[in-house]
Design a protein around this nucleic acid. Structure first.
Lengths: 188, 188
DNA sequence: GCCACTTTGTACTGTTCGGTACAGAGCGAC
DNA sequence: GTCGCTCTGTACCGAACAGTACAAAGTGGC
C-alpha cells in the first residue's frame, strides 16, 4: 500500500483503493499521499487537476481494465458460454468475493455522481450491452438476453452491498452460483 | 426541502435526503442547515452530538420505518404471498422506483461504514430474515427460503445502483417484476 | 562534469470544515 | 408584566482541507 509509487501509472492502484475505502469526499490528499507514498508535490505534478483528475484517471483505468478483460471477449465471442463463465470468474476475483467495493457502483450511488455521470453510465451500459450480446449468441432472444444481462449485473452489484453489510463473502459466492445456473452455465 | 423544520423529528426527512444525496462526508453543516432550514444553533441544540448524531438519528428512523412498515408484517404473516407482494410494493414506493438511494446500502459500501457497521448489519439481517420467514410460511424449505431472500434483497440493492447509473427507472421496475415471478406472486 | 529536464519535499496560501459560546428572541405559565 | 425555559442567529475557534510556489534534489544524455 505504501510502496512508494514511481509514476502516474504506478500510483493508480493505491489511488483506487483510497477512493474505494473512503469515497470521493472522504479521500483527503493526506490519505492519498500516505497510500501512494507520493508527496503533494509529486501528486500535483502527475495530476495537475488535483483530486478530480486523480478520480477521473482511476475511473478511466478501471473502465479500460474491464473493457480489456471482461467486455471485449463477450461482444464477439464464438464460445459465449465459456466467455460468460470466464466473466463471472473474473468478477469474483476482481471484487474479492464481494469484499471489495465497486468504485463505479459507489460513484453511481452518489458519492461523485455529478462529476462522473458520463463515465458511470458508459461503464454499466457497456457491461450490460456486452453481456446481452453474448447471451444472444448463446441462443437467447434479444429481449430475454437484455433482461438476463440487467439481472446479472444488478445481482453482482447488490451482492457486493449485501456481502459488505453482513460481512459474509458466502453471500457473494452464492449469488454467483445462482447466476451460473440461471445463465445456463451449469456443467451438464 | 427548505420548509423550515420546527423540531428534531421534523428535521429528519430533510436530513436523510442530504445524506442520501451527498453521503456522510459530503453532507456539510452548511448543506444540512440549508436543507432543514435550521441554523447551526438549532441543529446543535437538537443534535448535541453533531453530524454523527444526526446520521445515527436518520438511520434509526429509517430502521424503525422498515421495521414497522415492511419487516413486521413478514415475520408472523398468515398471508405470506400477499405480504411479500405488499413488501415489494412498499419498496417500489420508498425507493422512488430506484431513483432514490438506499442510505443504509450506501453506508454499507463504505461511506460511513466504521461508524454504523452494527446498524447496517442489523437492518439487512432483519430484512433478509423476515423475508425468509415469510417464504418458509409460503411453503419453501428453510435453505431455499434463505437463498431466495438473499437474492431478493440483493436484486433490489443492485437495481438501485443500475437504475441510477443508467438513469432508467425501467430497470428497477423490471427487476421487481422478475422478483414477483420468482417469488411465486404472479396472479394465476 | 555539465546541462536540461523531471521529480520531490516543504512551507505556505485562502477557504471551508465541524463544533462552541452566548446573548437574546420567542413564548407559555402564572 | 415577568419569570423560566426552549429555541435560534451570529460571531468565533482551531483544525483540516485542496491547492500553489518554489527551491533543491535527482537523473539521463552528452
Amino acid at each position: 500500500m505504501a510502496a512508494t509509487a514511481r509514476g502516474r501509472e504506478e500510483a493508480l492502484p493505491a489511488l483506487a483503493e483510497v477512493f474505494r475505502e473512503h469515497g470521493y469526499e472522504g479521500a483527503s490528499l493526506f490519505l492519498i499521499s500516505q497510500a501512494t507514498g507520493l508527496g503533494k508535490g509529486s501528486l500535483y505534478h502527475f495530476f495537475p487537476g488535483g483530486k478530480a483528475e486523480m478520480a477521473a484517471a482511476v475511473v478511466a483505468e478501471i473502465d479500460a481494465w474491464f473493457e480489456r478483460h471482461v467486455f471485449a471477449a463477450l461482444r464477439d465471442t464464438r464460445r459465449p458460454r465459456e466467455d460468460i463463465a470466464a466473466m463471472l470468474e473474473a468478477v469474483d476475483q476482481y471484487f474479492g468475493t464481494g469484499r471489495r467495493v465497486c468504485l463505479v457502483g459507489l460513484f453511481a450511488l452518489g458519492d461523485a455522481r455529478d462529476a462522473f455521470t458520463r463515465e458511470v453510465h458508459a461503464y454499466f451500459a457497456r457491461w450490460v450491452g456486452a453481456l446481452a450480446d453474448a447471451l444472444v449468441r448463446s441462443g437467447n432472444g434479444r429481449a430475454a438476453a437484455t433482461a438476463l444481462a440487467e439481472e446479472t449485473v444488478g445481482a453482482i452489484q447488490g451482492a457486493i452491498v449485501l456481502t459488505r453489510a453482513l460481512d459474509d463473502p458466502g453471500i457473494f459466492g452464492r449469488a454467483l452460483q445462482r447466476l451460473r445456473s440461471r445463465l445456463g452455465l451449469e456443467r451438464r
